[in-house]
């Protein structure tokens, strides 16, 4: 499929606030990206007209009950059948920040047994508590399974900002080790928080900004088609979004976030 034929759906509800930048990133790279409200999509039933689905960042439904859970249940209730087909056809889904929370609450991530009726993980209150909005370093630990990162060299360090109050990735305490092994064995672990040299944070704040278990910042499903991450690649799309943009000489107009968007587009070029 040619890049200009790729249709990206950036799905929003009330409280979504990163839809515009996310759509812009995809458009910048030559795809057709459309921002759609969930009710509009449900009314016309056209999710399957898209090649990529993106759940962008924000505070969907005011983060009521738990971040992402109302969007997740609403998506399942209104578009569940189309979502199932979309997933079964291995069409890629990206969840950024609140989008990652939605994918976890939906049961799609980690999704060890396909779509889980009840979440096998959570993204909960930061530890230390509070909304954190700053740049972090991420190490790509994926060995090539994730369709959003498989062109990025393993162990490459990316600089991308976070902005969240509930980003602490956790497994059930009694299953932490077992689930981490599954994550690694199935090549579902993608990004971990690290320092600028790539040394894992090992839980140390502020390198790990939220207390996430095993410094987890992003994971994908077994098939590598569904990917969620807490940092915001759309806020690291261009060099001028970086905090030190006035003091550095830039050889490219882009930032590290572009790598993820470019990566998935290249894969859709080949597979669809």
């Amino acid at each position: 499929m040619k890049t200009e034929d790729i249709k990206v759906c950036v799905l929003r509800v009330g409280g979504t606030n990163c839809d515009y930048e996310t759509a812009r990133a995809f458009k910048e790279l030559g795809t057709q990206a459309e921002i759609k409200h969930i009710n509009e999509l449900a009314k016309h039933g056209d999710l399957l007209n898209y090649n990529i689905l993106v759940l962008p960042g924000g505070f969907s439904f005011g983060d009521y009950v738990r971040s992402g859970v109302i969007f997740a249940r609403s998506l399942n209730a209104k578009l569940g059948k189309q979502m199932k087909q979309f997933i079964d056809e291995n069409r890629p889904i990206l969840g950024i920040c609140n989008g990652f929370q939605i994918l976890v609450e939906y049961g799609l991530l980690p999704g060890f047994d396909g779509t889980d009726p009840y979440s096998q993980a959570t993204l909960t209150t930061n530890n230390p508590q509070g909304f954190k909005c700053n740049w972090v370093y991420l190490k790509n630990e994926n060995k090539g399974n994730c369709l959003f990162t498989n062109k990025i060299p393993q162990n490459k360090i990316l600089k991308i900002p976070i902005a969240h109050g509930e980003g602490r990735f956790l497994f059930p305490v009694e299953k932490e080790k077992q689930y981490l092994e599954k994550l690694v064995d199935n090549d579902m672990l993608v990004f971990r928080y690290c320092d600028e040299n790539g040394t894992p944070a090992n839980g140390a704040y502020p390198i790990n900004p939220n207390g996430a278990y095993h410094d987890i910042a992003g994971i994908c499903n077994k098939e590598g088609t569904i990917f969620g991450l807490m940092p915001h690649p759309e806020r690291a799309m261009y060099w001028w979004q970086e905090p030190d943009w006035t003091s550095k000489t830039h050889t490219t107009p882009y930032g590290d976030g572009k790598l993820l968007f470019e990566n998935i587009i290249t894969n859709v070029n080949k597979t669809q």
Binding site: V65, V69, E105, Y118, S119, Q120, T122, L170, P172
Partner: peptide
């Protein structure tokens, strides 16, 4: 509770 109000992980 199981479907919406509670995340059994935490």
């Amino acid at each position: 509770s199981k479907r919406l109000l509670v995340n059994p992980t935490k």
